[in-house]
């Protein structure tokens, strides 16, 4: 990877579902260590874009490269191995499992124990479990989940579940973290907490963050750059301030009538 080159490069990616074009020739570059927000009205193709980066959808056209290597057609598990983690809009935790087990699962790709070592356990597998348990305990401390360690995640409140899901993604020690509406459905206090965690992760670990979020206050506060999608196309990109003032963006969010009246 050449110095200064983008960590994640999306080139002319397109995806159609039946007759609907969800994502239409989207290109964007994400630099190592930045916080990039992807915003846009409902149905703009934000989640579809994330699904293509994380390997759930195969783009019809275009190319996605991570750290200079093509990941366009890799399955999700291989993309995770390369260091891209994500959370989901509608939480996808393992609900019957404890917080601890969820986080330990996040470390799956960093662990090695095979069938035989697991079967015998005492010795190699136990040693590995303990080493990784320590890393997970660090995360539990970071996310202030100490007293919930042994709670099944299904019994936690919505905000806490989102936090555990963030923890599970972080357990992978990702180089890039894709967050799909991490603050959706939260109250103000929970949003502030989540924003703090995201900023801390970015600053302390240097993790690149790609964020889909509807709360403009949060987006404007924490992101370095903002990309605006509308009907599958990038209509604006740049610093939060400049994007906010972009007439195209205002039109996409508020409709054409408003724009016409303003012009008149």
């Amino acid at each position: 990877m050449a110095a200064g080159a983008a960590q994640l490069r999306v080139e002319g990616v397109a995806k159609q579902f039946g007759g609907v074009t969800a994502v239409d020739e989207v290109s964007l570059e994400v630099q190592q260590g930045e916080i990039l927000s992807v915003i846009g009205p409902n149905g703009a193709g934000k989640t579809s874009l994330l699904n293509m980066v994380s390997g759930f959808y195969r783009p019809d056209r275009g190319r996605i490269a991570f750290e200079g290597e093509d990941i366009t057609n890799l399955p999700p598990s291989r993309i995770a191995e390369r260091g891209i983690a994500r959370t989901f809009q509608n939480i996808a935790l393992f609900k019957g499992m404890t917080v601890l087990d969820n986080l330990m699962l996040g470390r799956h790709v960093r662990m090695k124990s095979g069938v035989f070592a697991s079967f015998v356990y005492w010795g190699l597998a136990q040693k590995e479990e303990m080493a990784h348990r320590e890393k997970v305990e660090d995360l539990i401390e970071f996310l202030k989940l100490e007293d919930l360690r042994k709670q099944p995640t299904g019994a936690l409140s919505y905000g806490l579940q989102k936090r555990v899901e963030l923890g599970r993604a972080l357990a992978l020690e990702p180089k890039a973290l894709l967050l799909d509406e991490p603050m959706g459905g939260m109250n103000q206090e929970e949003k502030e907490d989540m924003a703090r965690y995201v900023l801390d992760v970015n600053e302390e670990r240097g993790t690149t963050i790609i964020l889909i979020e509807h709360d403009m206050g949060v987006v404007m506060d924490i992101s370095k750059r903002v990309v605006v999608l509308d009907r599958g196309r990038v209509i604006a990109a740049g610093e939060p301030k400049s994007v906010q003032a972009n007439p195209e963006v205002i039109r996409a969010y508020l409709g054409t009538k408003h724009a016409i009246r303003k012009a008149a």
Binding site: A80, A85, A92, F94, L105, H108
Partner: peptide
């Protein structure tokens, strides 16, 4: 167990 509970999430964590 992860595959049983949530196969999509299992895939995303590798």
């Amino acid at each position: 167990i992860a595959i049983r509970d949530q196969d999509i999430a299992a895939e995303i964590i590798g």
